[in-house]
Design a protein around this nucleic acid. Structure first.
Lengths: 229, 229
DNA sequence: CATCTGTTTTTTGGATCCAATTTGCAATAT
DNA sequence: ATATTGCAAATTGGATCCAAAAAACAGATG
């Protein structure tokens, strides 16, 4: 886990820095699901007392990224297949609508930023950065919707499932398909075809969800078999 | 603000009790928007130190119910008309879908609970309880959707806007209309007409949003005039 | 060998204390 | 009268300390 205060903005409070670092570490999958987050260990890692660490953990729990039991500490939440499916279903409901709202008022600069991030996503060799670039691509297209509340719920949803996606994208043709779908969405946006762009976005998310659930079903079944035999 | 630990569950930690009490106080409108929440004052109110109070405030901030500036403390967030509109628009997108998903699998007991809360809502004289009863009515109908994530986002959305609704329901015919709409939704659910129930729910939420925005526009314009003259 | 029981070690939730920052106010200058 | 400067009070973020609960462990018992 990297500790870089400068990333977050100058003079952020310690708890904010820790919160961001932990959130990043969890969404990136650097700390595994079920892993315990010990206050004391994290405090030493950042050279602070446990107080700001506890504040960061409180925030993470409120976001659903860790779960806590009294006197038993925080562990990284592990989502069931059903819960992951639900998050994708949710995104497939929200995101097309946000894009639909954004298209009539979308600026050329926002569109250009979208194209830029689509290209960056397609040519990024480091799988650790795919999640962020994918998010920035979609965010650029959603931004002009002027719906901050929707966008915050989308970010929260992505934070929940991002860490599961990476292995799937690496080990399947998910990356290639995502790129093609991004291009198609961009084309529809350029044509200002809101219905088409929304439909493509919905399919993009549902397809990603299906791939991920399928991948996780297989790999979790595999793990079970390994443990058993 | 009432302090009753027993309500929340036995042996909840102090911070949880405080969080629930503050959340309730904010959603009920007992503390006004813009009002400062001083850690020391709240701590004395609950006979605890400021530490659990800070944890509660952190949670509230994460939920968007208060906003905080470094060294300046927490204040109850005040939503602009546009932000309130957005929350209703969000609910009008999510809730019909959840109801649609719930109907095919809805149990008779869930339906009975829905009818029960609709009746309780209709006959409740204390406006302070309308928000909760309305929420319970809809929640009963949504529950069998088996979509906990959707439901948590709905609850978060309601927490944001509930406190604005009460005055509007008291001072207009909103209460009567809400009752009629609840009955219509219930009838559609009884008939297992998912499309109709979803459409009625969408209209119910959009109508409530329009009434509230209209009401707030008038009353906020009124306040401005008073301040000016 | 597995299991139960009592004890030690970890770990957490909270209290108290301290330093940094902001805010309020009074005295002064314009 | 208004603006400005310089404390003093209020308030917050964080450190350190303490008690309660849970986990880990060791020895006793079947």
């Amino acid at each position: 886990m990297k500790v870089k205060a400068t990333d977050i903005g100058q003079m952020a409070s310690a708890s904010e820095v820790i919160f961001e670092a932990l959130r990043e570490a969890i969404t990136q999958g650097e700390v595994k699901e079920g892993e315990a987050l010990r206050q004391d260990r994290i405090a030493r890692m950042f050279n602070v007392s446990r107080i700001p660490v506890r504040e960061a953990l409180t925030r993470l729990e409120e976001q659903g990224l860790v779960s806590t039991q009294r006197y038993r500490g925080a562990v990284v939440s592990s989502l069931s297949i059903a819960e992951i499916e639900e998050v994708f279903e949710f995104r497939a409901l929200i995101e097309p609508e946000v894009l639909r709202l954004a298209i009539p008022r979308m600026s050329e600069t926002a569109l250009a930023r979208g194209a830029e991030f689509a290209a960056a996503f397609a040519s990024e060799p480091d799988s650790a950065r795919w999640g962020e670039l994918n998010r920035r691509f979609h965010y650029a297209l959603y931004e002009d919707s002027a719906r901050p509340y929707y966008l915050s719920t989308i970010n929260a949803a992505l934070d929940r499932v991002d860490r599961y996606s990476r292995a799937q994208l690496v080990l399947t043709d998910g990356m290639a398909r995502a790129q093609r779908e991004h291009e198609a969405i961009l084309a529809a946006v350029v044509a200002r075809d809101a219905d088409q762009a929304a439909a493509l976005t919905r399919e993009h998310i549902l397809a990603a969800g299906r791939s991920l659930v399928d991948f996780l079903s297989r790999s979790r079944a595999g793990e079970k078999a390994v443990r058993a035999g």
